[in-house]
């Protein structure tokens, strides 16, 4: 076992344990969006889970650290908070805030992270970025809201892990990246109607099981 000291709190973990998971298990909250427990390699995409490790000059994402030897970690230094707040502000600047009409309202990771970091949902000096259409209905029974999506990739990776043929994929590149379902295929659609894990994996309100879609899934059966 390896000893960790996080914010002065002592704990022991098995070697090779992921730092973020270890902290979360101990009840030490570190903001995160793209972390996926079962993933073999971290995505390290949301850039929220920064921590400072004694002896390492710059903050590091906790999801990328495998604990090999004793570490002294701080989760709330000014450098960490500065990066986290900027990352969140950036995500929010590309996010269409309309919580009242969003099905994720009050269960949304963005809301809780904003509260935790004391950042308003409308980030100041950054101007809002217009993103594509309100809702994408390419998938036979899952609606996707690109303007709510934070591109954490949890849906894509969850689907790939549970199913060799992910039904959602990132498309495009850079600021134009969107999660999309491209074309349907009856056998795979049927699997979706039983699985729904991507919808559960979404930390925000960007994927929704379409109510009228439930009917569609039965017609496929």
């Amino acid at each position: 076992m390896v000893e960790l000291i996080v914010d002065g709190h002592r704990m022991t973990v098995p070697p090779g344990q992921q730092l973020l998971a270890a902290c979360l298990a101990e009840g030490i909250y570190i903001p995160h969006l793209c972390h996926l427990e079962e993933a073999p390699r971290p995505a390290a995409a949301c850039r929220l889970c920064f921590v400072e490790i004694a002896g390492v000059p710059a903050p590091q994402p906790a999801c990328t650290i495998r604990v090999a030897s004793a570490l002294k970690v701080r989760t709330d230094t000014p450098a960490v908070r500065r990066l986290q707040r900027m990352a969140l502000r950036l995500l929010l600047s590309a996010h269409h805030i309309d919580c009242r009409r969003c099905h994720a309202n009050r269960a949304c990771a963005l809301q809780s992270i904003a509260r935790f970091l004391k950042v308003g949902l409308h980030p100041k000096p950054l101007m809002a970025i217009a993103r594509p259409d309100e809702v994408d209905r390419h998938h036979p029974f899952i609606d996707h809201y690109p303007r709510r999506c934070v591109l954490c990739g949890r849906c894509v990776r969850t689907c790939r892990n549970g199913n060799d043929h992910p039904q959602f994929s990132f498309t495009g590149r850079g600021i134009d990246t969107v999660v999309r379902h491209y074309a349907s295929n009856l056998a795979l659609d049927k699997r979706c109607s039983e699985c729904r894990r991507c919808v559960a994996a979404c930390p925000v309100g960007a994927l929704q099981w379409r109510r009228e879609g439930a009917g569609a899934s039965e017609s496929v059966d």
Partner: peptide, 25 residues
């Protein structure tokens, strides 16, 4: 064209979404 993406997906046992995702990158 979409037909070509479907064809490639079929041959490599990938979902069309995955192939389209790679191509648009």
């Amino acid at each position: 064209p979409q037909a070509a993406i479907q064809l490639v997906a079929q041959h490599l046992h990938l979902s069309p979404s995955e192939v389209y995702g790679v191509a648009t990158f």
